[in-house]
Simulated assay, not measured.
Amino acid sequence: MPVTIKDVAKVAGVSPSTVSRVISNHPRISPKTAAKVKRIMIEMGYHPNMVAKSLVSKKSNTLGVILPRPAEELFLNLFFSEFIRGIVTQATRQGYDLLMSSGTTESEEMEAITRFVKGRRVDGVILLSSKKNDPTVKFLREQNFPFILIGRSDEHADVLSVDNDNVQAAYDVTKYLISLGHERIGFVSGPPQLVVSQDRLEGYKKALKESNLPMKSHWIVEGEFLQESGYRAMSMIMNLADRPTALIITDDLVAYGVVRGITELGYQVPDDISLFSFNNISISELTTPPLSSVDIGIYQMGYTASQALLRNIQEDQHDQRRIVIPHRLIIRQSCAKMNSQERS
């Protein structure tokens, strides 16, 4: 006969309801009791029937993750892989699985969100990007459904979110390049509809204005978070008569395309142009030259997002707030002082 919750409870010397709470990772069960019950479950070969459990508890023990682009495109960028690793680590510790979905259009994203919520397929949702006038945020708020936003909502200050201070981070990078003597600084941005793109561009402009330095529209290029975007940007920027002597790039993957484009045009980094990027993914220090980049704590952001959402779900907390992860400037060899570069 299959082992039941009552069998486990009898051996563990606890009530069946306590075993159920251990299975649900209830926060009020002491670590000692939870460890004991889990050990006995393993020894007795007990496996919870999660489908039956979800019917009773009306919980799926699953988190939904909405990917901002098609998966085959998204996972070309190690940023998202590291982010998902952080989410999975915390979710697994709490006994939760992940259900991921993506869409190529806004309507497809809304369809995925609707399936998650209306079908009760997940207990909460993690949105991996924040957009201006985001309909998914509006929908989840209307449904009073637990969710967390990666980034900053430009409309709702009370939304539970995990983010960096992207205005300050871009400001810090720009001021660092200015301290090296650069006066013509360009910016390779992400998609303009994303709040992170707006914030980083704002920080860049703020630093230039404070230092009374020029900010020219043709020094700013918008694109996707793809290597090809950076590659294409260089054919325009490096052919300008007044081209920048330094570039800030909003994503490391884009920066790899920038380096490739610069090299193919016969220029060198940092002798001809300095580069400073964002995200500090693992291979940034392995590029030639090693890439200066802003460490935004990718894994920590994913881990914290999962942790905060699960606390909201399990403890029914509604004190929505914005969690800010500190950033660090990682200085490597892709930036040089102006006195070691030719002024043109």
Rank of each mutant, 00 (worst) to 15 (best):
K38R: 14
I42F: 01
S54T: 06
V37G: 02
G45T: 05
A35M: 01
M50C: 06
L55R: 12
S60A: 15
H47A: 12
K36V: 01
M50T: 14
A34P: 02
I42Y: 03
P48S: 10
G45Y: 10
K58V: 05
H47T: 14
N61I: 01
S54Q: 09
A52I: 08
K59M: 15
H47F: 13
K32Q: 13
K38G: 00
T33E: 02
A34G: 03
M50D: 11
T33M: 04
A35V: 00
A35S: 07
N61F: 15
V37A: 03
E43V: 01
T62W: 04
T33C: 00
K36Q: 03
K36I: 00
L63Y: 08
I42K: 13
S57A: 14
V37K: 00
K32L: 06
M41A: 04
P48M: 11
T33G: 00
T62K: 09
K53L: 15
K36P: 00
P48N: 10
H47C: 06
M44S: 05
V37C: 03
S60N: 11
E43T: 05
G64M: 07
M50L: 15
S57M: 14
S57N: 14
T33W: 02
N61L: 08
M44C: 05
A35F: 00
N49K: 13
T62Y: 06
V56I: 13
M44E: 02
I40E: 03
E43M: 03
K53F: 09
I42V: 12
M41I: 06
G64P: 08
L63W: 07
N49I: 09
E43C: 03
M44A: 04
S57T: 15
K53G: 15
A34C: 02
M44Q: 09
Y46A: 03
K53T: 11
K36L: 05
A52E: 10
K59A: 13
Y46W: 03
M44K: 12
N49V: 09
I40D: 03
G64T: 08
T33D: 00
K36M: 05
M41G: 04
K36A: 01
E43G: 02
L55I: 06
I42E: 13
K36D: 01
G64C: 09
A52Y: 07
I40A: 03
V56N: 10
H47G: 02
P48E: 05
V51N: 12
L63A: 11
T62V: 14
G45H: 06
K58W: 05
S54M: 10
I42R: 14
V51R: 11
K58Y: 10
K59I: 10
L55H: 12
V51T: 14
V56Y: 04
P48D: 06
V56M: 06
V56L: 09
I42T: 08
I40V: 05
R39C: 01
